[in-house]
Design a protein around this nucleic acid. Sequence first.
DNA 1: CAAAAATGTCAAGTATACTTGACAAACAAT
DNA 2: ATTGTTTGTCAAGTATACTTGACATTTTTG
Lengths: 75, 75
Amino acid sequence: MSHERVGNRIREIRRRLGWTQAQLAERVGISRVSIVAIERGHFLPTIETSLRISRALGVSIEELFWLKEEKKEDD
Amino acid sequence: MSHERVGNRIREIRRRLGWTQAQLAERVGISRVSIVAIERGHFLPTIETSLRISRALGVSIEELFWLKEEKKEDD
DNA sequence: CAAAAATGTCAAGTATACTTGACAAACAAT
DNA sequence: ATTGTTTGTCAAGTATACTTGACATTTTTG
């Protein structure tokens, strides 16, 4: 069912850094369940959570999230 | 009471473009009441709404929103 | 000043972001 | 094969994003 409107690359970048979901959750300051849900597109984070994820992973929001209507067709 | 955690420059950039709240709302695809609330920091938009605002205004998310804990001290 | 346009606010409702706790399934070690 | 770690999922609750409609206030313009 995932979210059709916004794609993200959180998992890819998290794995590139060798972090677990639990580690990312702790650094971002939200629960691991929320990380799972966001990675898999079960719901869309707020701008605050997005900025914290972006900061934790060290990449820009634009590298992390995109509107599917107009960007890459993957995920 | 506004949101203390995230600052934004939506109003400034909207005005620079000479747009009304109603015009921005229409282009973004949300209600004018929500634009008011987001501009004034009454609540935080989702990443989807943020990306649409960013696209509508033609500026990056990072130019539009920032975590107050670590960026500029102005509202 | 008066009229019009833009902005702010309130209320009440709906949708969804996010939480904790618990457990199941997949994967990786020995 | 068993143990440990990581990931996925469910349920039930709380917080908050966003809506419409209506109206008050402020700003702009003639």
